[in-house]
């Protein structure tokens, strides 16, 4: 295994909320171009794991290395690292007081020092790719859930991230809108974007994932390529889980 290729290296990650021990030592390596799909029952710690990767949750133990630098170090410049880690939330979290275009150009202009023209050109190009160029001047409240989530994805892409983190991106959507969001994510994966996806969409995991991870009770119980993972699950907890969701 080529060590240079490791984008995110997670070592013995621990997280407690008060007396509740959510993550009990998670180890994982995400290589460039990987699409790691994280599944598990609710309350297993999979969302916490994802939110620890860009330090929205501060780990209580262990280390995370991003592109070779330890971001859990006390002196690490977390804001700079986060610019390279796009995140998509279950609840979209678009900024309701800004137009779609402003949502997308705010961060590149303020943080990357892009001019308005540069930022808007990039935003429009991305909007066109997800078929929403005509909504550039709309406000988030005027969009459907699926449209909002596609905007949230391209908003993160405007920062040219090295990795995209997805926290149950389709769980808040009406069923008929799930497809359009998964389609965008699929395309992104085919372009070689490194992705970590927490989801309940087993079809997506099987089709797009390069690595599927099963988290239960704060530890990774099984990790394998999707064919192996779904066809030949080893851990009894995973067998049980798959029998319920498939």
């Amino acid at each position: 295994m080529n060590a240079d290729n490791v984008l995110i290296d997670v070592c013995d990650l621990q997280k407690s909320f008060g007396s509740i021990h959510v993550l009990k030592g998670v180890n994982a390596q995400i290589h460039r171009g990987d699409v790691m799909v994280v599944i598990g029952p609710s309350g297993s710690g999979k969302s916490t794991f994802l939110r620890c990767l860009n330090l929205l949750e501060m780990p209580t133990g262990g280390q995370i290395f991003f592109d070779g630098e330890e971001i859990t170090a006390p002196k690490a410049n977390v804001d700079r690292h986060r610019q390279k880690m796009g995140m998509v939330f279950q609840q979209f979290n678009l900024f309701p007081h800004m137009t779609i275009l402003k949502n997308m150009t705010l961060a590149p202009m303020k943080l990357l020092g892009k001019t308005k023209q540069e930022a808007e050109a990039k935003a429009m190009e991305l909007l066109a790719r997800v078929g929403l160029a005509d909504r550039a001047n709309a406000y988030p409240s005027q969009l459907s859930g699926g449209q909002k989530q596609r905007i949230a994805i391209v908003r993160a892409l405007c920062m040219d991230p090295d990795v995209m983190l997805f926290d149950e991106p389709t769980s808040a959507l009406d069923p008929e809108m799930v497809g359009e969001v998964l389609e965008v994510m699929k395309e992104l994966a085919h372009e070689g974007m490194t992705m970590v996806v927490v989801t309940h969409e087993m079809g997506f995991a099987r089709e797009v994932g390069t690595d599927v991870v099963f988290i239960d009770d704060g530890v990774i119980l099984e990790q394998a390529a999707p064919e192996e993972f779904f066809a030949n699950p080893k851990h009894p907890r995973l067998k049980d889980f798959l029998s319920k969701v498939l």
């Binding site: 929205l56 804001d79 390279k84 880690m85 995140m87 979290n93 961060a107 303020k110 920062m159």
Partner: peptide, 9 residues
Amino acid sequence: EAGRSLGFN
């Protein structure tokens, strides 16, 4: 969280 995740301090 959305603001922080984009890299804003």
